[in-house]
Amino acid sequence: MDNLVIAATERSPAVDFDFAAGVLSLKGESYPEDASTVFGPIFAALEGFLGVAECRALRFDFELIYFNSSSAKALMNMFQLMDKAAARGVTIEVNWFFAREDETMKEFGEDFSEDLEHVTFNLATTQN
C-alpha cells in the first residue's frame, strides 16, 4: 500500500502515513474551510490500510496544536474506525501529544480516549 505524505498548509496538518512501518502521524493545525476535503483522503487511506492490516501493529502519533470543531468530528470518525479495527485484533497504539500548559488539547485527548475500548491511548506532553 502506498504511503500517504501531505505537507502542512496554513490551515491543514502535515500527514505522514508510513504503512510499511506501521507508523502514522498528523501534525500541526487544522481549521480548513471544508474539513471533508482535508480529511476525506486521510480517512480513506486509513480505512484502506486497516482493512488489510489484520494481525499488524499500528502506531498513530497526533501532535496537533489546534483544530476546529469540524476537524474534531473528522478525528472522532478516525478514532471510531481504529477502535473497530482494534476490536478485530489489530494492535493500535495512539500517542496524543500536547504542550504542557495547553489544557484544551489535553482535554481533547481525554475526551477521545474515553470512547476507545480497544485502542491503547497515551497522553504525552511535548517540550514546548
Binding site: 481549521y31 474551510e33 489546534y66
Partner: peptide
C-alpha cells in the same frame, strides 16, 4: 496559552 487557545477557537468558529 489556554486563554489564547480559547479566544482563538471562538474566533475561528465565529468567523467560519
Amino acid at each position: 496559552l489556554t486563554t489564547i487557545k480559547k479566544v482563538f477557537s471562538v474566533f475561528v468558529e465565529q468567523a467560519q
